[in-house]
């Protein structure tokens, strides 16, 4: 039982970072109907910024995180304004391909900053851990869970109670109707990219925490793809559940598969989230919390 709880705890900690990236995907998708493939690169850029600001610039960790997150938000908004806004009205497929290009560009620039060495994150958690009721919890995982919970609560409050949040929800439901009511849809687009980039940067911090950042760190961002499809492409709650589920399923398979299902081969834990995703899609084609698309025929 302890081992099971241990695996779930560890999985939730890792899944929290996946959830943050996934929420970014969903926010952009809801606002613009575009799946942004630039999220992994923005995640890596945020992680790299923190590593460099703490290592090279000598900033304190939390100051560096704030600077990196603000910087990522500005980058996200800037990219939306200069590259994607002019393409509004074009087929969504084209916009998605543009985000793929953005991903490559941002990764290349980030790699230049990473340089030839791996970059330690210099976070305060490192590999420290605490044992509670027989369960060992890594501090970085605990921090990721708490941070994710706080951020989601803040996002919920923003969307529920602020005028801008209401405007973003309205634009997500119907852009033309909201525009007719005075909502600046362009601002909504920019804000959605800024939020997504900021969340990706925070996720990057937790991906790199206790470890190092290198030129392949962006690959972790791809773990958010099964998460958003599992949870539902247009559901923030679904993204969170999906991200946590991916982390937990990975951890459970890493812990038990070798003992109980060795015939599945090595490293099935990496494939397991995708298998879970397929199983869910067979039952709920729009994901656990996604909105079924109704088409008149």
């Amino acid at each position: 039982m302890t081992q099971l709880l241990q695996a779930i705890t560890s999985g939730l900690g890792q899944g929290a970072a996946y959830a943050l990236i996934a929420v970014g995907f969903v926010i952009i998708y809801k606002a613009t109907s575009v799946i942004s493939f630039a999220q992994p690169a923005l995640m890596a850029a945020g992680a790299t910024a923190v590593a460099l600001l703490t290592g090279q610039a000598g900033l304190g960790f939390y100051t560096a995180v704030v600077v990196a997150v603000v910087g990522a938000a500005l980058l996200g908004a800037g990219v939306e304004r200069t590259v994607l806004r002019p393409m509004v009205g074009k087929p969504v497929f084209i916009l998605a391909i543009i985000t793929l290009g953005l991903d490559v560009v941002i990764r290349n620039v980030t790699n230049r900053f990473i340089g030839f060495n791996v970059r330690p994150m210099n976070d305060p958690w490192g590999l420290d851990r605490t044992t509670l009721l027989g369960i060992t919890i890594q501090h970085r995982h605990l921090a990721a869970l708490v941070t994710t919970a706080v951020l989601l609560a803040a996002l919920y409050a923003f969307f529920q109670y602020s005028r801008t949040g209401l405007a973003m929800r309205a634009a997500a439901i119907d852009q033309e109707a909201s525009q007719a009511q005075g909502v600046n849809v362009g601002t909504v687009f920019g804000l959605s990219w800024a939020f997504a980039a900021a969340l990706a940067a925070i996720a990057g911090v937790f991906i790199g925490a206790g470890s190092t950042v290198d030129q392949q760190t962006w690959v972790v961002g791809l773990k958010a793809l099964p998460a958003i499809i599992l949870g539902g492409l247009d559901s923030v709650v679904g993204a969170v559940v999906g991200g946590l589920a991916v982390g937990v399923v990975e951890a459970l398979f890493a812990t038990y598969q070798g003992t109980y299902m060795p015939w599945l081969g090595s490293n099935f834990s990496i494939v397991a989230p995708y298998v879970l995703m397929l199983m869910v899609l067979l039952v709920r084609p729009y994901g656990l919390f996604g909105t079924p698309e109704v088409q008149r025929v």
Binding site: Q14, I207, S211, K223, G258, S266, S269, I270
Partner: peptide, 20 residues
């Protein structure tokens, strides 16, 4: 022999195997 794919987030199997 423990095969492990690239990525620090993918080293869970290997770490579990070493611990076990």
């Amino acid at each position: 022999g423990v095969q492990s794919p690239p990525g620090p987030e993918n080293q869970g199997d290997a770490i579990q195997a070493i611990a076990a």
